[in-house]
């Protein structure tokens, strides 16, 4: 997909962020973000995907003006967030990872208070209905569940009717119903033209929500593209343009598939009798393996075909070692 640079809401180029020696445990200067660049557009969900500690939050906090960058340039709606005035802040909604809501507050007075900071806010009654906040409107923030807090924080970020919305790990703590509610709303906001930038370490979030994904590792970009493009990311040279898939099946243990499938397809037996064939599978490969079973009278007890997930891509790119 070609990224059209005509209407970016956020442009980051060559962002560097060092954390001073006082803030790190070993007293050394730490480079949290090193030369990261990205572009987010109106009417799109742009996701920063990466493991914990990859520099996602630092990056968006620099974009929000909450942290001062060491080097690089950031343009948020055409302005430098470090010089942001009330005018720019009114056009940008922020949902922080830790919520940032006072524990003693009750949801509705809090939302009304924040709404008062804007000229033309989103009607609070409508917002609380939309996010199901009425169900816990009498409970103080301190006593809300993780998912309720998250929905309230989203409402607080939206109450100013922003053009740009930052969401830091939006699905953290959400139960499946709240998650659906929040995801539906995000999709609607995107369709209405809002530029949405979110961070997540959950592949599923990125896969379900994002129009464009930046994979971040150790403070720099390692890959980018639409979800579809990333899923087609080739495992090996020569597979370009083909989908990597996995054929999962269960059968009698200890079968030897040597010579049945082409070289690029790897068959592993994770548990006795549980097989996975991964590679750029073609219809001919499927015919070959079923013919092989038919010739031997083997009937698999289960059989399924899976497309490659964003998680596989992510692990291929950023490495599988635990850090």
């Amino acid at each position: 997909m070609v990224r059209s640079p005509e209407s970016p809401v956020l442009t980051i180029s060559g962002l560097v962020k060092d954390v001073g020696p006082l803030a790190t445990l070993d007293g050394k200067m730490l480079r949290v973000v090193s030369g990261l660049s990205l572009l987010a557009e109106r009417g799109q969900v742009t996701a920063l995907l990466g493991a914990n500690g990859a520099g996602k939050t630092t990056t968006i906090e620099c974009a929000q003006g909450l942290q001062k960058r060491t080097a690089g340039s950031i343009s948020l709606l055409g302005e430098d967030p470090d010089d942001a005035g009330a005018g720019l802040r009114a056009r940008v909604g922020v949902m922080l990872q830790d919520g940032g809501l006072p524990p003693s507050a009750r949801p509705i007075p809090l939302l009304r208070h924040i709404a008062g900071m804007y000229q033309d806010p989103w009607p609070v009654d409508e917002l609380i209905g939309r996010l199901g906040i009425d169900a816990f409107s009498r409970t103080s923030v301190r006593r809300l569940s993780g998912g309720q807090k998250q929905r309230l924080a989203l409402a607080a970020a939206l109450v100013g009717n922003p053009e740009v919305l930052f969401l830091d790990e939006p699905s953290a703590g959400l139960d499946p119903q709240s998650r659906q509610m929040v995801f539906d709303l995000i999709a609607e906001l995107r369709n209405s033209g809002m530029g949405i930038i979110l961070t997540t370490h959950l592949m599923d979030d990125a896969q379900r929500l994002a129009d464009y994904v930046y994979i971040i590792d150790a403070g720099r970009n390692v890959a980018e593209g639409t979800v579809g493009e990333l899923l087609r990311h080739q495992l090996t040279e020569g597979d370009a343009g083909h989908h990597v898939r996995t054929l999962l099946f269960e059968s009698e243990p200890g079968l030897d598939f040597t010579g049945v499938l082409p070289d690029g397809v790897e068959v592993t037996e994770a548990r006795a009798g549980s097989y996975a064939a991964t590679g750029v599978l073609t219809p001919a490969d499927l015919a070959a393996i079923t013919a092989w079973w038919a010739a031997r009278g083997i009937m698999p007890s289960s059989l399924s075909l899976e497309a490659r997930s964003l998680e596989d891509v992510f692990l291929d790119i950023s490495g599988r070692e635990i850090r």
């Binding site: 009114a90 009717n161 740009v164 809002m194 530029g195």
Partner: peptide
């Protein structure tokens, strides 16, 4: 585009 951010109070 239909998103029009509101101004500050």
């Amino acid at each position: 585009r239909s998103t029009q951010g509101s101004g500050p109070a």
